[in-house]
């Protein structure tokens, strides 16, 4: 069952956007180019997607592709021009002010690119801000905030002010704040883009650790394809407001749906992305016995085996040790070394 699902979502900016869009939708010829021609700025065009519970969907796109706008429609920071967003069975567009505030106070958390901390409040006060909005008393607020601060590794800095912290630390505060109300749904808008490369990597690890622990439903925005590959369960690649492809990292790398997606995957080291499970074929009767391969292992991690173990096929098993398919050595080597004529 999907936690968030959106159907035919449109968001168009511009003075006459509303009328232009509804006219175009009625005549059935709404598309990016025709709307631009009418002087509108379409940011999200006819997007439909579903996000399952505890899934991490990464929305990837270059600047101006509409990914941030899409996120803001999913959280209803922006009202969609057309289409529906349903969160946990509630249609966002139909919620009144109070309903929306309740939803945010109880179910949603969001992390921002430039941290968006309140400069006049300490770390503790920033983190307990959503709890304060909810009207919780000072004592409960403090206890919960300290818990989350501990979780993001900032214990001992509760009394610091944002400007006294480094960028990475500030974003930890942002993360802690978004987690304070124990949201089911977690939105992250390019959370690591403003950080230095080294810190970014640390933060990604930290983030993966948190996600493993908390298991939230996540929508994560980035313009960094590597980051997307590293974190995502599924990636949605956006261009000109539309989703070009939405799929697992492995499949995006192996089977890019469009020219545009292919250009991103060109320079990716596939072996580090593709998992054994992805390449596995249905089990044939004549599979040789011997060491099995874990389905979550990347091809890169199997490189030594592929060279030394010359069997045609390996058995692929899941975490429980149950066989799920077989991996052809040649296919794996193709990924590892690049197929003939493919990019190096």
């Amino acid at each position: 069952m999907s936690v968030i699902s959106c159907r035919n979502l449109w968001k168009v900016f511009g003075e006459s956007a509303h009328t232009d869009l509804s006219r175009a939708l009625q005549s059935g010829e709404a598309d990016y180019a025709s709307l631009v021609e009418q002087g509108c700025l379409p940011a999200v065009c006819d997007v439909s997607l579903d996000i399952a519970r505890a899934e991490m969907l990464v929305i990837m796109g270059l600047s101006g592709s509409g990914k941030s706008t899409l996120l803001r429609c999913l959280s209803r920071l922006l009202d969609a021009s057309s289409g529906d967003v349903v969160v946990d069975g509630q249609n966002l567009g139909e919620l009144d002010k109070k309903g929306l505030i309740d939803l945010r106070r109880n179910k949603m958390g969001m992390v921002f690119q430039n941290f968006a901390l309140l400069p006049n409040r300490t770390v503790l006060e920033n983190v307990s801000f959503p709890l304060q909005m909810r009207g919780q008393d000072r004592h409960t607020r403090r206890a919960r905030a300290l818990e989350v601060i501990e979780l993001v590794g900032l214990a001992g800095r509760e009394d610091y002010f944002p400007r006294e912290l480094s960028g990475g630390q500030q974003q930890r505060v942002g993360i802690a704040r978004s987690l304070a109300i124990e949201p089911d749904i977690w939105f992250l808008d390019e959370p690591f883009s403003a950080l230095d490369p080294l810190i970014r990597r640390d933060m990604q690890d930290e983030f993966l650790r948190l996600q493993e622990m908390l298991g939230k439903t996540i929508v994560f925005i980035t313009h960094d394809f590597d980051e997307a590959l590293r974190l995502a369960d599924r990636i949605a690649i956006m261009k000109d407001g539309a989703v070009e492809q939405i799929d697992t990292p492995d499949r995006i790398v192996l089977q890019p749906a469009t020219e545009y997606v292919a250009r991103f995957t060109e320079h990716v080291e596939r072996a580090r992305v593709v998992h054994a499970g992805t390449l596995a074929e249905p089990m044939a009767a004549s599979v040789a016995q011997g060491d099995t391969v874990l389905e979550t292992a990347t091809i890169h991690s199997l490189a030594r085996r592929l060279v030394n173990d010359t069997r045609e096929h390996y058995v692929v098993v899941d975490e429980a040790g149950k066989a799920v398919g077989q991996l052809a050595r040649s296919a794996a080597l193709d990924v590892l070394l690049g197929s003939e004529g493919g990019a190096a």
Binding site: R104, G109, M110, A116, M133, F187
Partner: peptide, 29 residues
């Protein structure tokens, strides 16, 4: 006041008054 900061306030479930009182005015300090 940066739009992001306002959005962060909204996502924390602030009402309009809370937004003004706790987010906008302190940030415009």
């Amino acid at each position: 006041v940066a739009p992001e900061v306002v959005e962060s306030g909204e996502m924390c479930g602030s009402t309009r008054w809370q937004l003004l009182r706790h987010v906008r005015i302190p940030t415009a300090r």
